[in-house]
Design a protein around this nucleic acid. Structure first.
Lengths: 156, 156
DNA sequence: TTGAATACCTACCAATCTACTAGGGATTAT
DNA sequence: ATAATCCCTAGTAGATTGGTAGGTATTCAA
């Protein structure tokens, strides 16, 4: 159930970039310093984000990275897919069909849970933008939050 | 983003037990055979479920495992917590407070996402029972299935 | 034109985790 | 007593994680 640090660091880097959006490129070293991350490792993490077209790089002396679009139009889902591949907790419940596996039982009881879980995760990730993670309040633009029995969850 | 096979196998075993609920103990070897799992490995997986009080074991000749309660009253959340520990994707967004970490920033932007995600996951897991995974239809009490692009999932 | 600052790439590595296997001990119905 | 079962611990090959190291390419500025 643990997320790899790739996602954690990658998202933190993107939030950092979102916060300085509009102020020109931010050097890798600056991001790493600001977030307390290893520069070399962060470099490997930001590469897939660039390849996915989420950040732009400019080389040379005043170079660095910038968001490829406004923080409002980049979702956590895009970032996670770039870093982790298709969103799925399990082979047979991937967002994009995995024909191969699950020959065993398509009507497999437990698969139902993984599908529900995946949908729920995809829903959260795709409805959260970088802007949502930067503003002071914690509510995204459209509030389609269903009033579930949240609130029992101790701790802010 | 991948779940360990512990959870997958553990849940499958529990579904198997749920399906034979009321028919006496089911031997480990039978569960393993029915689900196509390694017996030795499954043994290690079912142990924490027993320690968590979710299944009961009876030794001896006609022994085996039974659910400790009705499938309706055992949730996926209980099973996952027994197998994976506290539900969290990341240290600083655990369900039970982790004071230690995250000295960096409690108002950390990215943390907001992990909390939302965790809440969403906890919500799904705690609202799904074993009975939900055994019945013919795929709807638990409330039906909130969004019509996503499922159906692409090519059947075997 | 040179130099420095940056991004970009590949290979390597130690430690940990995963998914088992092996083998024996404890308990119980027959 | 015996066989069937659960129970426990240790080992292990391979993959993954979280990096480090070292070099190349590109750009700006003097």
């Amino acid at each position: 159930m643990k997320l790899s640090s790739r996602s954690e660091y990658g998202l933190r880097a993107m939030v950092e970039l979102a916060q300085s959006y509009g102020s020109g490129p931010l050097a890798l070293a600056d991001i790493a310093r600001a977030q307390g991350l290893s520069e070399g490792y962060l470099e490997q993490i930001i590469a897939p984000l660039r390849r996915a077209g989420l950040v732009l790089a400019t080389r040379g002396v005043k170079g660095g990275y910038t968001l490829a679009a406004s923080p409002k139009s980049i979702t956590a889902g895009q970032i996670m897919r770039a870093l982790e591949g298709p969103l799925d907790l399990i082979e047979c419940a991937s967002e994009y069909g995995s024909e191969s596996s699950c020959k065993r039982e398509l009507a497999c009881g437990s698969r139902r849970l993984w599908l529900k879980l995946r949908d729920s995760i995809v829903d959260v990730l795709d409805s959260t933008t970088l802007a949502d993670l930067c503003t002071g309040d914690s509510t995204p633009g459209d509030k389609k939050e269903k009033p579930r029995h949240v609130g029992v969850l101790a701790g802010q």
